[in-house]
Design a protein around this nucleic acid. Structure first.
Ligand SMILES: [Mn+2]
Ligand SMILES: [Mn+2]
Ligand SMILES: [Zn+2]
Ligand SMILES: [Zn+2]
Lengths: 124, 124
DNA sequence: TCTTTAAATGCAACTATGTCGCAATAAATG
DNA sequence: CATTTATTGCGACATAGTTGCATTTAAAGA
């Protein structure tokens, strides 16, 4: 299925590029008035299918999306934690890559590590 | 707020004790026909407030509850990953405790690490 | 044991997040 | 410009979880 370059998907991409944190659907909605809810979800899911973004599920149960920066086309890993601030709701990457030994017979497909708490800004 | 020892909360506790995996609301519902949805949620949340159980949020966005075993009353840590099988939906603890250095100024309050994939049973 | 108190429950309504079907719109290609 | 089909808007739907309120019931006391 060939992708088309639409105003909406461009704008969502720009938002993702501008933000260095991982972005929620809600936050994108707020910056794109007039664009339908479902459309934004579809754009984000398309990006994810295409390997353009990571999808993180927070410990609030919500989805957050972040541009893939260090991911090659073939190997696509983001074994790092994210920090979610319970006050300002920012979700940032914690750079350190985690290597985790799986028990015999278990096949890991997705890594989803989230630490929540209070971020530097909100703390000080 | 003093807790009361009711048939329902006893039964939920028994289910949590019997299962070694982390349990979803859905799974408890299935084993306790006749008990209201909301009641089960409330019991689980009470257990969590009281520090009896861990609450894990899966990368499916759902909540899973597991009895606290190695948690003291005061120090209450469960810095370990959970593995969620995308086929059988079991959520098990991966024993190894993770120690993670927080960046300067960040206060960690909750650890939520989930690896999803295919478990040993479903794999073989 | 009877009475009192408030925690726990059932039920319905509600919120929130995300998905889907379908007709209308609009990129891309020639 | 005409054709094709990916994308969109809209409404409906699904699922997970929460909340208000009247009723029930565990627990403490008389
Ligand atoms: Mn990636
Ligand atoms: Mn614990
Ligand atoms: Zn913050
Ligand atoms: Zn399995």
């Amino acid at each position: 299925m060939k992708r088309r370059n639409t105003k909406n998907s461009q704008e969502v991409l720009e938002i993702l590029q501008k933000e260095e944190a991982a972005v929620s659907h809600e936050k994108i909605m707020a910056q794109l008035e007039g664009v339908d809810r479902a459309t934004i979800y579809r754009i984000l899911n398309r990006f994810h299918e295409d390997g353009k973004v990571h999808k993180i599920v927070g410990d609030d149960g919500k989805q957050y999306f972040a541009l893939c920066l260090n991911c090659g086309e073939s190997k696509h890993v983001h074994n790092h934690f994210h920090f979610r601030c319970v006050q300002c709701n920012e979700v940032v990457c914690l750079d350190k890559e985690i290597s985790l030994q799986m028990p015999e017979g278990y096949i890991a497909e997705n890594f989803n590590g989230v630490i929540s708490g209070v971020c530097k800004k909100c703390n000080s």
